[in-house]
Each structure stands twice: as C-alpha cells, then as structure tokens.
Amino acid sequence: MRSIINYLKEIIFGVWSLLKGMKVTGSYFFRPSTIVTQKYPSNRKDLVMFDRFKGEVVMPHNEKNEHKCTGCGICELNCPNGTIEIISKTIITEDGKKKKAIDKHIYRLSMCTFCGLCVKTCPSNALAFSQKFEHAVFNRALLIKTLNKPGSQLMKGVE
C-alpha cells in the first residue's frame, strides 16, 4: 500500500515539476518585450557598436591627409605575433635635414589577436581601434592592409 502511495506521489511530483518549468517557458509567450534577439543583417544601418569595441587597428588621418605616426617602431616591438611591420624611408625636411618617416605601416588583420598593446603603447597616439567588425573577404591578400593613406604626411607638431 505504501509503495503505491509513493509511486503516485512520485508521478504527481514529476508532473508538477514539469508544469513549473512549462510555466516559465510559457510565460514568455505573453511577454514578447523580453525577447532580446537582434535581427542582425537587417539592422545593419542603425547598429551602433560600443566605442571601445576592438574591430581592427586603424590610423586616423585628419582632413589634410596627415597622420601622427613617426615610425618609431614601438608598436612593431610590442606586437606579440608580428602583425605590424613598419617600412620606413628617409625624407629631407624643409630646412634640409634628413629625417626618418614611415613609408608603409603594414597591418596583417589575419594575424591580429586584438590584445591592444600597439594602441596602448603608441607614444604619439597614432593608432586607434575602429568599430568595423565585418571582415570577411574572398581573398586572403586583402587582409594585409596598409594603414597610412597614400601621399599622407606626418602631422605638424608631432615628434
């Protein structure tokens, strides 16, 4: 007799626990405002990423096509896996002195681990992170980027 009662008790408890779980899931049918899914590809236009999001490393240029990179190579030294390569050249300044400047600041996105050391250690704040996150390309060579724009110069006042 006791075993039958226990058996029935177990069944009732089991059904009760299942109903309790169903109550949680069922209640979301009547609370559609709590659904948080983003409809990603269709909300691309008004999708705002957080301003610190590490999308890719960029070199901000001003409207006169000037950047702040002096070509000191600290970012290249600090990069853990050789993502950054600086090819420098010698230029002659207006007052006739020879000076080192960057020719190409090469950034290999495919190797970058987004540790942020290059941006943090840059002494002249020449590098920054952009919020672009759609990096898929068809050709691997497109992931090797030159950060300084063609014809760009060092900003005045940055040493």
Binding site: F50, R52, F114
Partner: peptide, 23 residues
Amino acid sequence: DIFEETCGGRMIVSYSCPGGLMY
C-alpha cells in the same frame, strides 16, 4: 555587453596588464 563596453572585447577581454588595467 558590460565587457564589450569597458574592455573592447567580449570573451577575449585582455583587460588587465602588469601594473593595472588597459583602460
């Protein structure tokens, strides 16, 4: 989202550095 806003990464945060924090 909290991580992304403060550290810039979601899972791979890299937020601490020897001597303090990145930002």
